[in-house]
Design a protein around this nucleic acid. Structure first.
Lengths: 206, 206
DNA sequence: ACAAAAAATGAATGACCATTCATAAAATGA
DNA sequence: TCATTTTATGAATGGTCATTCATTTTTTGT
């Protein structure tokens, strides 16, 4: 019954968690700068001063939140890919685990991915939607390329063409992310086939 | 000589562009909320009131900037993938074009990708670097799986294992992004092989 | 060169919000 | 029950900005 924490300590932890939960909800919805400490306090049903008993300041609150979420994700995925099974199965575990943590934390994800471009403006401006629509239309163009290649028999029907277009775009982004961080170590390939071959040639020796 | 714009109009356009340039530099470096109109005005060497002659308010300035950049990118990529060549070549064009716009606009990119997670906190806190390091280590784990599969002869040496790990992660992200936006239309696949097959089986009929 | 029009300026205004701290409420234990 | 300690409260403070607009400077046309 006692879990080595006193009633009071357990109570404090619950309070703290309530605050973090409220903050997460608000941050992920509106973005860091568009949420006031007042708001967080209200949503968590505490006075604002109480918030400051638990967190030094707003940034501390955010960092804590960010860290806890990152840990949660990281642990789930590390565990999944670390299971002592064969390579293919470990990749499967990873793919599945990633799906699960995402789906279980859909609200959260926006804090990671969509925060700025997402919340701070677009909530008001709605402009972001227009851009997303355009990106969608652009992907459709890519999908047509795959589709048409399939019709001609150049490509196999490996997956939905739209997905393939998205996959290729994200593949490029992956390379570019590496390049952004360490340009000399990970130059973006001169030869586009270095990227395309990942899609073109199967990894499995069949 | 006259390009159908008066001296004055051309002058105004240049001014406007100077303002946008200054804003881009600052936004991409520090994030929207951490840049004041005062700062932008100073960097562009105008009085703050002049800024408001050109842009209704801060959000308008940002949206304009965002829109112009998005247009530039979009046009370059659309053109690349639209050239009347065979499918494979069009994909190549796209991959190359994407590399070029990125590299030509490295400063800009952070406005798109890294803004919040990037600037607003991490500039001060440095926490973000720790997270990125951990992500790197995590990818290395994934890379080991690919590496080990290659050693066993299960996988072909298609690409650098680290890149493959990154590619797989981004592939999952692609699926999850779709799912986030339209969960019913694009469910995350039950079967992980739906994702993995894109890597496992080549698109090309060889 | 001069007056009228256009453009540029930046000090002043008002809102917003993080943070503090004097006070009130609750918990403790004798 | 009551005094003491611990915790919670939210009004008050101070700082930061976005935005405005009365004034100054520059341009234009005569």
């Amino acid at each position: 019954m006692e879990k080595d924490l006193s009633r009071r300590e357990r109570e404090r932890l619950r309070q703290r968690q309530d605050m973090l939960d409220a903050a997460l909800l608000l941050f992920s919805e509106k973005g860091y700068h568009n949420v006031s400490m007042q708001e967080i306090a209200e949503k968590a049903e505490f006075a604002i001063g109480t918030l400051y008993k638990f967190f030094q300041n707003k940034e501390d609150l955010y960092k804590t939140l960010h860290m806890e979420l990152a840990d949660k994700f990281h642990n789930a995925l590390t565990k999944a890919i670390g299971e002592p099974e064969d390579e293919i199965q470990r990749l499967r575990n990873y793919v599945v685990a990633k799906g699960i943590v995402f789906q279980e934390n859909a609200a959260v994800i926006r804090l990671y991915f969509a925060e700025t471009r997402g919340a701070s403006f677009n909530i008001k401006s709605g402009m972001d939607k227009a851009l997303r629509e355009r990106y969608k239309r652009f992907l459709l163009k890519g999908a047509h390329v795959f589709e048409s290649g399939m019709k001609k028999g150049i490509f196999q029907r490996l997956a939905d063409p739209y997905l393939l277009a998205l996959a290729l775009d994200n593949l490029c982004n992956a390379f570019l992310t590496l390049w952004l961080e360490e340009p000399e170590k990970h130059p973006y390939p001169e030869d586009p086939d270095e990227i395309l071959n990942i899609l073109f040639h199967g990894l499995l020796k069949s």
